[in-house]
């Protein structure tokens, strides 16, 4: 009896050039062949490991010294990853010790806030490269930078507490995005003008998929710098700002 081995589906292979979807992967009986099954498992394993990865506090603190800005280490109200995944409300709030450490901050323009989010791996690997492009641009344009903060078990909105605690006019949250099967290392950048507790997503601008194989550091920095400049010029961020950013040429 002749068996349907993947090679017999060779005619379908030609379709693969048109899409990154997992098409023309063959079959054994009605099932997915082992090679493709293991490839999928590996991609999922990378995503799962990213969700449970931890912020490299010491490594990042050391590397951030190159920018000659103070670095603060903060933590949300979340106790552990299991709670983080089930209680997004707690991930949006700083714990008491962190709130106290922000007292008496001098006024600043931009607070850069590095948050683990759903992929600390993404933040560990891709924030320094981005900041090496972005920070010199911001400094050249005379934006006063607040201390850089490193935040564990945080969600995007925790930047509102931190930005206002640091007396900053704008918060820039760099956070690990929910890992996809082919992208466990995406950083998202969220800008909020006049950050204060209680804001919602419509007050922010988001730039997604920042990673070497996605939106490059250089392109991401260019876009972030443009949005920060516009936010200061118009004294706002969010939906109203987004509309005018669409004409940017990337």
């Amino acid at each position: 009896m002749k068996r349907n081995i993947p090679e017999e589906l060779e005619p379908l292979k030609a379709l693969q050039e048109f899409t990154p979807a997992r098409i023309a992967i063959g079959r054994v009986g009605t099932s997915i062949p082992l090679k493709q099954s293991l490839e999928f498992k590996l991609a999922h394993a990378h995503a799962r490991d990213a969700v449970y990865s931890e912020l490299d506090i010491n490594g990042l603190s050391d590397t951030l010294k190159q920018f000659q800005l103070p670095v603060l280490q903060l933590h949300s109200k979340v106790a552990d990853r299991r709670q983080y995944l089930q209680r997004p409300d707690l991930g949006r709030k700083l714990n008491d010790a962190s709130i106290n450490s922000l007292h008496n901050s001098a006024a600043a323009d931009v607070a850069i806030i590095i948050v683990d989010g759903l992929s600390a791996t993404a933040v560990n690997e891709n924030t320094i490269g981005l900041l090496q492009v972005l920070i010199p641009q911001l400094q050249a344009a005379n934006f006063k930078l607040a201390p850089i903060t490193l935040v564990e078990q945080g969600r995007v909105a925790i930047g509102d507490d931190i930005g206002s605690g640091l007396n900053a006019k704008l918060s820039l949250v760099l956070i690990g995005e929910r890992p996809g099967l082919s992208s466990a290392d995406s950083v998202g950048a969220y800008l909020t003008y006049n950050p204060k507790p209680g804001l919602t997503d419509e007050s922010r601008n988001c730039i997604s998929n920042i990673r070497p194989k996605g939106l490059s550091y250089k392109k991401a920095a260019k876009k972030i710098f443009y949005l920060i400049s516009e936010a200061f010029a118009r004294k706002l961020s969010g939906v109203d700002l987004k509309d005018n950013a669409g004409s940017l040429d990337f």
């Binding site: 899409t19 979807a21 997992r22 098409i23 009605t30 999928f40 999922h44 996809g180 099967l181 082919s182």
Partner: peptide, 18 residues
């Protein structure tokens, strides 16, 4: 029915043709 159970637009896993 999604190729290889991997939706590359919505970024989630569902069921495959198989």
């Amino acid at each position: 029915g999604i190729p290889g159970a991997d939706d590359i637009m919505l970024n989630y896993q569902s069921t495959s043709f198989h």
